[in-house]
Design a protein around this nucleic acid. Structure first.
Length: 291
DNA sequence: ACCGCACCCTGAGCGC
DNA sequence: TGCGCTCAGGGTGCGG
């Protein structure tokens, strides 16, 4: 699912559809842990409000409302945020798509996984939040209220520095991979870009964080910023569920050096890429290039 | 304080 | 065809 680049692309495309438009009505699915704020108060709070800004904090999106409240959104593993006009059949699963007649495939109709539908007072295109696995989150934050989710996030991963990683890695027994995935250290890095950054830095994902040298940390920070920026430029990674809010695929998956390339030759040396579970996540690396 | 693990869900793809 | 299994880009909360 979406990591920093995909969330940032989503933010840029959704921002003009949200900011300055008055929400008239909100439809939701039933209450579930997806809705940290229960649906009744959520609907009540959003009706009549206008969004003044849409910001990204790590992998979270935060919409500022005109009454001082904020709406927190997280896309989880399979979350998709898009508009009715931009929706395409790529937003549905392959099987759901196949069951539709060709003319029906052009327009998206909210289904059981479409947990949030925003209708606007101008009668224009709606905004949908769809999430098959429901690992996403929706929460309303009261003015001035602290939020345990975003308040503890580290600096944005696009601002990663060797200094920061070196300081954070001292005395840590966890794997380097786990350090990169720790959102309190750097916010926004996920499994794909952690693996890619480790490859660019020549560091094995399982290496203890405390054993990273200053040079390793510089290389990791540089590699991370490079892959994140490049992914944003190319429209993100469309590996399983992710599609941009206009329904288009990203292209970064074509530039992957290690992620989900198990058994395929390393692009640098030809050695088959290995896969190992580290920090409870599948990790991909070149056993020759990474030490 | 830190670390590893179970768990929250649904769907795709595979071997049999 | 269908069953059972594994896997999936995330995050929290618990026990040791």
């Amino acid at each position: 699912m979406p990591e920093l680049p995909e969330v940032e692309i989503t933010r840029r495309r959704i921002e003009p559809l949200l900011v300055g438009r008055k929400i008239e009505r909100v439809d939701t699915t039933a209450d579930s842990y997806f809705f940290i704020t229960p649906t009744r108060p959520l609907k009540r709070a959003l009706a009549g409000r206008t969004t003044s800004a849409l910001e990204r904090r790590g992998k979270y999106l935060v919409a500022a409302l005109d009454d001082g409240r904020r709406l927190l959104l997280h896309l989880g593993m399979t979350g998709q945020l898009f508009s009715s006009a931009a929706a395409s059949v790529r937003l549905l699963s392959a099987t759901a798509r196949a069951s539709l007649a060709p003319e029906e495939q052009r327009r998206f109709e909210p289904d059981a996984h479409t947990h949030l539908c925003l209708h606007f007072a101008d009668g224009g295109e709606q905004v949908f939040f769809r999430d098959v696995r429901k690992f996403g989150k929706v929460q309303l934050i009261e003015p001035g209220e602290p939020n345990e989710r975003i308040d503890r996030l580290g600096p944005d991963a696009l601002e990663a520095t060797g200094d920061l990683l070196f300081a954070a890695s001292r005395k840590r027994k966890v794997a380097a991979k786990a350090l990169l995935l720790d959102q309190t250290v750097l916010a926004g890095t996920g499994n794909i870009y952690a693996d890619e950054a480790l490859f660019l830095a020549g560091v094995r994902p399982g290496r203890r964080a405390a054993r990273l040298t200053r040079r390793d940390c510089d290389a990791l920070a540089e590699g991370l910023v490079r892959v994140l920026r490049r992914s944003i430029e190319t429209g993100g990674s469309s590996i399983s569920d992710y599609v941009a809010p206009d329904g288009s695929d990203g292209a970064y998956q074509d530039e992957r050096r290690v992620y989900a390339r198990t058994g395929e030759p390393c692009r640098a040396c030809g050695t088959p890429i290995k896969r190992r579970v580290i920090a409870q996540r599948s990790s991909h690396y070149c056993p020759a290039c990474q030490r």
